[in-house]
Amino acid sequence: MGVMRIGHISIKVMDMAEALKHYQNVIGMKVTHTDAGGNVYLKCWDEWDKYSVILTPSNQAGFNHVAYKVTDDFALVRLAQKVRDYGIEVEELPAGTLPDCGRMVKFNMPSGHEMRLFAEKDILGTDVGSTNPDPWPDDMRGAGAHWLDHCLLVCEMDPERGVNTLVDNKHFFIKALNFFETEQVVVGPNGSIQIACFLSHSSKPHDIAFVAGPTSGLHHLSFFLDSWHDILKAADVMAKNRTRIDVAPTRHGITRGETIYFFDPSGNRNETFAGLGYQAQRDKPLITWTEDQVGRAIFYHTGSLVESFTTVYT
């Protein structure tokens, strides 16, 4: 009993009309709500809760907050207490603070990223329903993403000042929120510096991930697709829509995931991710990627890093 999955992510966009074209026509989401402040709420066809992405109008791109859904109100109370016991301040937000969402607890990760937990959100159901469902709906658009799968956050690190908020986040997620680590990337003498961390709270290889960077920010939000063929089709959709592709279809060593990285019209990086790789389990030995193989950890085929991928984020 505890965290179930990523519930939603809230990000800033500069041109709402362009953003909506992208998230609807390329990703394949549907708008389920627009509030008085001009914030737009969207869901994927295979999701049942009312929304998984919130777009907020702004004069910049980037991250607002990420929220994870927990099993029930009892878990919410218990986790809020564990966060407090860990020494992190918690704010209680009443039901309705976000439309159609129950009460939330809000706090900052050690990296400074705002996080929320909630137990209830209005259920619209998947687009194929729950009674004798077909495998996919007839009005699927674009890549036809199934669900928001995870996000990768850039966490401030400065070895000279002894700051590594990625490691601080890892400890917090494991101790207070009961996540477990599936994979890590280490560099430096004897691999003493951790620069990437993949954490799960389900049987997926990751539900959230962290990489180290000079300042905290958003590296990408990722949407799930079924197969390698769906990845190819998604890339075709992106080409048709003139979407800026950062990394063309390939495979990660880490998580074994099949992937495309691309940017939304405000410059927020998105990923479409296929193949659940392996079943993550709490007793599975931690996978470690070493500095000399970091290229293959990220881009398995070429084994070489892509400069924009390791330097550009919002």
Partner: peptide, 12 residues
């Protein structure tokens, strides 16, 4: 010129 998002968001 450094290339990133090509969409005005990342600043590189």
């Amino acid at each position: 010129i450094p290339v990133g998002c090509v969409n005005g968001g990342c600043g590189v």
